[in-house]
Design a protein around this nucleic acid. Sequence first.
DNA 1: ACAGGCATGATACGTGTGTACCAGGAGTGG
DNA 2: CCACTCCTGGTACACACGTATCATGCCTGT
Lengths: 223, 223
Amino acid sequence: MTESSAGRPEPADRPGSVGKPEPAGKPDHEERRRQIAEALLRIADTEGLQSASMRAVATEAGVSLRLVQYYFTTKQGLLLDALARLGTQLQARMQRWIGEARGPREVVTAILSCILPTDAESRRITRTYAAYYALVLSDPEVLERQAAQPPVVLEGFLVKQLRAAQQAGGIAPGRDVEMAAAGLLAMVNGLGSSVLGGQRTGEQAQAVLDHHLDELFRQPSDR
Amino acid sequence: MTESSAGRPEPADRPGSVGKPEPAGKPDHEERRRQIAEALLRIADTEGLQSASMRAVATEAGVSLRLVQYYFTTKQGLLLDALARLGTQLQARMQRWIGEARGPREVVTAILSCILPTDAESRRITRTYAAYYALVLSDPEVLERQAAQPPVVLEGFLVKQLRAAQQAGGIAPGRDVEMAAAGLLAMVNGLGSSVLGGQRTGEQAQAVLDHHLDELFRQPSDR
DNA sequence: ACAGGCATGATACGTGTGTACCAGGAGTGG
DNA sequence: CCACTCCTGGTACACACGTATCATGCCTGT
């Protein structure tokens, strides 16, 4: 049952991008898979994963049930593939945000606040991740690696950035940046949950984050 | 569908605690309900809510399916009742922890670290809450009030304690205690998620929390 | 032109679900 | 003793689910 998302036949001989933009003969496998997986993610976002049956996904994607079965043999395969795509989307968003940042402090701010559900895209991503959360917890081994990788590598990256900011003099040298990184990441995660739960708006969450970043980046001489 | 957990007939004439500890004639309604609801929570903890069918709950509780139906007419009723009980359990645990604390700082520490999944009881409670999380998110209005109440009142209480600590001189007067409370609570929530996700041990999460509490309670003269 | 395989549609199957129905036992007030 | 209400067991129903099966179209290589 360790079926990876690359377990399908996957013709392997991609004809490249030569002419013929779709003569309705050979459909683009990857495009189809994307279309179906995103339908699943859309349902997970709006109605939760428990409403994402194979039939519902097929309807949402505008294809027949058989097609969903064809491109993703089993439901678990579909769930895993969609989760991987969600991870890719988040990663792309984060790199986009990081790219616009100048200097270590802005990079740190970008990393953290790009996860907060403040705009439509991040709300969607966060809600969808939340939908997967319970599933990942109850399915111990299979999904653990797939989903537990991002957080740990992200935390390492954050530590690196904080250390850079510290050496540049933006953070007091006495600070333990590993502890700070772990705390900030957990805080952002928790803030996201509270926004999704309706106890806070995205702007309020952002304000809390900003406040703590100000606190972290305050020089001892500022007081 | 706004059926509260008190929607059952509820004989209303509790005979008090007079003699007859159970002649197998009239069973104790509340005791039965507790037994069944805790079976549901046990399943939610170990296998997730999606495995908590009426039949599974009945088997786990050692009663017939009909009994579960009898005491909780509908499944939603059972889910809500069990969630309310879970909240009560967490509240009881927290008051127990707070009771052992002397001084405002210890109260704050107790509030926060009693949520962290470090011992068996808190692991159980946290996992079970996590199992409910997706359900609450996808069911907007019905469950929102039931579950969104604790966090907001808890945050208010935390603010009060932090302010007390601040006036007692334990926290620098310049600190915004409301922001600090929101951040800490979110951080504890996020730390709990990471422990459940297996990225951190309970002890490591506790260490992160302690570090940030040290930071918050540090006097300006300490540096 | 013809086989062969890829792609897709319609439908069936077995299972598990929440809930409803019916029948009977046990205690109690008249 | 007789209804009467409160409990409890067994079972049935309708439905939704994931998956499997059969059949057919359409493109491609030779």
